[in-house]
Design a protein around this nucleic acid. Structure first.
Length: 199
DNA sequence: AAGTATACCAACCGCGAGCGC
DNA sequence: GGCGCTCGCGGTTGGTATACT
């Protein structure tokens, strides 16, 4: 693999950087409406934006795209993030794919700023009491933990695709592009509940 | 009220993969 | 097969808002 081409980089001197203005947002949205969200370099040029393609893509994906859900992450969403992260690791785009209207960036930020701390706190609190419990639970939890470990390592021993797994008898495919379904989510939460408990 | 610490989030960066020429 | 372009991902940074002293 060759090094990343120069064209992929946003050179500091050549482009605007930092926060986007309302005017820039409008220009970008207009061009995307006409030409679609692709060829970001030309989108930037057509919009007359002094931004690199990558910056335009990011702005569109994380902010301007239709159906973006903004605001607080609900308890149900948080629960789902925790469980999916347990299974998939830091694969934010996959996790975001199962949370309608949420972006990978948003989930990553949410995880880094809140959930990771929350987990550390819980681990501290539970370290003592869980020592005993874990001996009993280990046999049950190991299924999910194994998948999570394999996902992180990318070396699933029982399946080439680490982004799907069985929980109990049910197959969950995290790469599936099918539209979000509340049924899927509640089924996942329900099934996962019986296999692992957080924390 | 002012200064400092912390939390949050938008944006940037580097890299790898896919694709067409 | 090699090269350049484009896209997408995950890690990181930096600015701003809020809380605290």
């Amino acid at each position: 693999m060759s090094m990343a081409p120069i064209g992929n980089k946003c050179t500091r001197k050549e482009v605007n950087r930092g926060a986007w203005t309302v005017e820039e947002d409008q220009k970008l949205a207009q061009v995307i409406e006409i030409h679609g969200p692709r060829r970001w370099k030309s989108v930037a040029a057509k919009a007359g934006l002094n931004r690199c393609g990558k910056s335009c893509r990011l702005r569109w994906m994380n902010y301007l795209r239709p159906n973006i859900k903004r605001g607080n992450i609900s308890d149900q969403e948080e629960d789902l993030i925790l469980r999916l992260h347990k299974l998939l690791g830091n694969r934010w785009s996959l996790i975001a794919g199962r949370l309608p209207g949420r972006t990978d960036n948003e989930i990553k930020n949410y995880w880094n700023s809140r959930l990771s701390k929350k987990i550390k706190q819980n681990e501290k609190q539970n370290r003592g009491s869980r020592m005993q419990e874990s001996v009993i639970k280990n046999s049950k939890v190991s299924e999910v933990d194994l998948v999570a470990k394999e996902s992180e390592e990318g070396t699933s021993k029982r399946d080439d695709d680490p982004t799907s797994c069985f929980i109990g008898d049910t197959f969950f495919d995290f790469y599936s592009k099918e539209p979000f379904s509340l049924e899927w989510m509640s089924q996942f939460l329900e099934m996962d509940e019986s296999w692992c408990s957080f924390p």
